[in-house]
C-alpha cells in the first residue's frame, strides 16, 4: 500500500470522526438547549463512544489474528458477556462500586472467558466454526448467569442494569470518559507495538511458529491486553456487539491486513462508527432512546450473517 493512499485513508477516517463528533454534539431532541447542558450531557458520551468504539475495533482485530478467524470479536465470542458477568458479580458482592472497581471486575470476567476460549482452541480438531459456536454458547451461559444473579440478589436499579447489558453510553460522565479514553489510547498503542507478531499469527499457529514467533507466549500477552480492553469497554458502555467484527473486516478490505497500518485505521473507524451509532440511538425513536447495542446489532448482525455465508461459499 503506497504511502500517499494510506495517508488519504487516514485523513478521510479522521475527518469523518470529527464530523461524527460535531453531529453528535449538535444533533438532538431539543435544538435550543443550553450549550452548557449540551457539554455536560453530550460531550462525555462522545468521548466514551470514541474510547469504547476504538477499544472494540482494536480488540476485534486482535482476536481475529489470535484465533486466525475473521469472524471473531468480543461480543460474538461471548467475552463481552463474560466481562458483564464479572462486573455484575463484582457489584453484587459489594467489592467495589467505583469506576476502577467496575473496570477491574469486568476485566477478570473477560480474561476468564477469553482463557476458556483459548483452551478450547488448543484442543485438537477445533476449527473456526466450533470455536465460534463455543463462544456463542459461553455468551448464552454468561447472560443466563447474569440474569440469574440479578434475580437472586434483587439488585437495585435492575432496569438500568438491563439497559447497560444491551449497550448503553448514557451514563457517561466527563471524568470517567476521559480516563477511559486515555487508558484505551495507551492500550491500543501497546497492542500496536505487537503488529508484527499479529501479522505472523494471521498465518495460523504453525505458520507463526515457522516465522520464528514464540506463539504461546505472544498469545498469552495479547489475550491479557485484549481482556483489559474489553473489560474497559464493557464497564464503560455495556455489551456492544459487531463493531469489533465489521470494522476490521471493512478496514482489511480497504488497506490490507498488515497491522501496523490496519490497527490505527480500525481504531479511528471504530470510534467514528460508535459515535454515529450512539447519535442514532439517541435520536432515531425520539423522544425515547434506544440502547446503542441495539443499533449496532441491527446493522452488524445481518452483515455478520452475510460474511459467514460468503465464507462458506468461498470454501
Amino acid at each position: 500500500m503506497a504511502r500517499t493512499s494510506l495517508f488519504r485513508h487516514y485523513l478521510f477516517a479522521l475527518s469523518l470522526w470529527v464530523f461524527a463528533c460535531i453531529t453528535a454534539l449538535k444533533f438532538g431532541v431539543a435544538t435550543q438547549l443550553d450549550p452548557e447542558l449540551v457539554m455536560q450531557l453530550r460531550l462525555p458520551r462522545v468521548i466514551l463512544a470514541t474510547a469504547v468504539g476504538m477499544g472494540l475495533a482494536v480488540a476485534g482485530t486482535t482476536l481475529q489474528a489470535l484465533f486466525t478467524n475473521p469472524l471473531c470479536e468480543p461480543y460474538t465470542l461471548g467475552i463481552s458477556t463474560g466481562s458483564a458477568l464479572g462486573s455484575v458479580l463484582g457489584i453484587s458482592l459489594g467489592l467495589q462500586v467505583n469506576f476502577a472497581g467496575l473496570a477491574g471486575s469486568s476485566f477478570f470476567g473477560a480474561l476468564f472467558f477469553t482463557g476458556l476460549l483459548y483452551l478450547i482452541s488448543l484442543r485438537p480438531g477445533t476449527n473456526n466454526l466450533t470455536l465460534l459456536l463455543a463462544g456463542v454458547m459461553l455468551g448464552f451461559l454468561g447472560s443466563s448467569l447474569v440474569a440469574l444473579w440479578m434475580a437472586v440478589t434483587d439488585a437495585n436499579g435492575i432496569q438500568g442494569a438491563i439497559l447497560w447489558l444491551m449497550g448503553d453510553l448514557s451514563r457517561a460522565r466527563i471524568y470517567g470518559a476521559t480516563f477511559t479514553l486515555t487508558v484505551m489510547l495507551f492500550l491500543a498503542y501497546v497492542v500496536w507495538t505487537h503488529s508484527r507478531e499479529l501479522d505472523a499469527l494471521l498465518m495460523g499457529e504453525e505458520g507463526a511458529l515457522v516465522l520464528g514467533i514464540p506463539v504461546a507466549q505472544t498469545r498469552r500477552r495479547l489475550i491479557l491486553m485484549t481482556s483489559i480492553i474489553i473489560g474497559l469497554c464493557v464497564s464503560g458502555g455495556g455489551m456492544i456487539g459487531f463493531v469489533g467484527l465489521i470494522i476490521p473486516h471493512f478496514v482489511r478490505r480497504l488497506i490490507g491486513s498488515l497491522h501496523i497500518n490496519t490497527l490505527p485505521l480500525c481504531a479511528i473507524w471504530g470510534s467514528t462508527s460508535l459515535v454515529l451509532a450512539d447519535t442514532a440511538a439517541r435520536t432515531l425513536v425520539r423522544p425515547y432512546e434506544l440502547p446503542v447495542g441495539v443499533v449496532t446489532a441491527l446493522v452488524g448482525a445481518p452483515l455478520f450473517l452475510w460474511m459467514m455465508l460468503k465464507r462458506q461459499g468461498d470454501a
Binding site: 475473521p70 501479522d199 498465518m203 495460523g204 505458520g207 516465522l211 482489511r252 490490507g256 491486513s257 498488515l258
Partner: peptide, 19 residues
C-alpha cells in the same frame, strides 16, 4: 500458506523478515 485474511504476495514474503 493460510490465506484467511487479505494479504498480498509481497506482504507474505515480507513476513519472512519478522525473525
Amino acid at each position: 500458506l493460510l490465506a484467511e485474511f487479505p494479504l498480498t504476495a509481497f506482504e507474505a514474503v515480507m513476513m519472512g523478515q519478522i525473525c
